[in-house]
């Protein structure tokens, strides 16, 4: 994939800034610094070497120490006044600062004081350097789960330690498992722990607000490669296909549940098809939004939810309500 010329330009300008502040940098280190291959670094330096101010006589050009470069060390000799870092554009500043603000508000619980301080200081420096434009975007991430659970997950994830958790599934089944944390995913709607589950011998995604208790164990977490992009719930293609016709008020279902298709109907109604891995999850959903459901296919799905609702109503009748 060809890199965009503008991205390469920014990197080359960044390299001049970096090389101005560091006398003599090995090509390998420069590659790591800018997240590219050593071959790309050599191409960038070769390009920088022939650019400069019009005329392009030797004294007009950006220049490096040739003897040093032969030994694989880049030493800037002439910068043609390009050493100052480029100002951040408004959208660039917004993208970084809004992310940092949201991160600070949720990560504080899972981080030690030193790391929290780093987050706070970089936010302060960037805000000072870019002004208040970033106030245009305000992201609040999910803060959920018991504080002691969140703290244990943070400690185990950053410290690479095994966890014992008590977990309740969407189908209301509780179990105790030992897991090796891989990543703590905090999103705007929910937070999840992606972990290797020693009971399932596989990666599992655990919703943090359903982790009832978490204990950091003495054993280190063994490292497991993240095999899937299992960072969101994705139903399998052979799960049961269910079609729902819903009133407009239930539009959030089309927006927040991974659906196969959405079709708008007259009067603002709409039809969604979704793959259902867990019948208990679908029953839960239908019990919530029954008033907005116009039709359900297959019919036994509707019968199952209606039956569960009647049992619940009977429990209230018993209570004399």
């Amino acid at each position: 994939m060809a890199e965009r010329a503008t991205d390469r330009l920014l990197r080359m300008l960044g390299m001049i800034t970096y090389l101005d502040r560091h006398a003599g940098v090995p090509v390998e280190q420069l590659a790591e610094q800018f997240g590219v291959t050593t071959r790309q670094v050599v191409e960038d330096i070769d390009t920088l070497w022939v650019t400069g101010t019009p005329g392009y006589w030797p004294h007009d050009l950006i220049d490096f120490d040739a003897a040093s470069y032969d030994e694989g060390v880049v030493r800037l000799v002439e910068s043609r006044g390009m050493t100052r870092p480029l100002r951040l554009g408004t959208r660039e500043a917004v993208a970084l600062i809004a992310a940092l603000r949201a991160m600070r508000s949720v990560l504080a619980a899972g981080l030690d004081r030193g790391r929290t301080a780093v987050l706070a200081s970089v936010l302060e420096k960037l805000t000072a350097a870019t002004g208040e434009a970033a106030a245009a975007v305000d992201v609040r991430l999910a803060v959920e789960g018991a504080p002691e659970v969140v703290a244990a997950l943070g400690e185990a994830t950053t410290g690479a330690r095994r966890l014992r958790i008590r977990y309740v599934t969407a189908a209301d089944v509780t179990s105790v498992r030992e897991v090796d944390p891989i990543r703590l995913l905090t999103e705007d709607e929910h937070a999840y722990l992606l972990a290797w589950c020693h009971r399932a011998h596989d990666e599992r995604l655990f919703r943090v607000d359903r982790i009832l208790a978490a204990e950091v164990l003495d054993e280190p977490a063994t490292s497991h490669p993240v095999t899937t992009h299992a960072t969101t719930f994705a139903p399998a293609p052979d799960d049961e296909l269910v079609t729902l016709e819903l009133a407009s008020r239930a539009r959030w279902i089309a927006e927040q549940v991974p659906v196969e298709s959405v079709e708008d109907l007259p009067d603002g109604d709409f039809r969604v098809s979704l793959r259902v891995a867990d019948p208990a999850w679908l029953r839960h959903l239908l019990l919530q939004v029954g008033a907005d459901v116009r039709a359900v296919t297959p019919a036994d799905v509707a019968r199952d939810a209606a039956g569960a609702a009647r049992s619940a109503l009977a429990a209230y009748d018993d209570a004399g309500r």
Partner: peptide, 28 residues
């Protein structure tokens, strides 16, 4: 965000080894 990061990369050394907040992945 990537462009902003590229502009700022010239200002500090890349962190060595594991990330400061490895394993924590907030996102929207």
């Amino acid at each position: 965000a990537t462009r902003a990061l590229t502009k700022l990369r010239g200002l500090a050394n890349a962190p060595a080894g594991t990330d400061l907040v490895a394993g924590l992945a907030p996102r929207v």
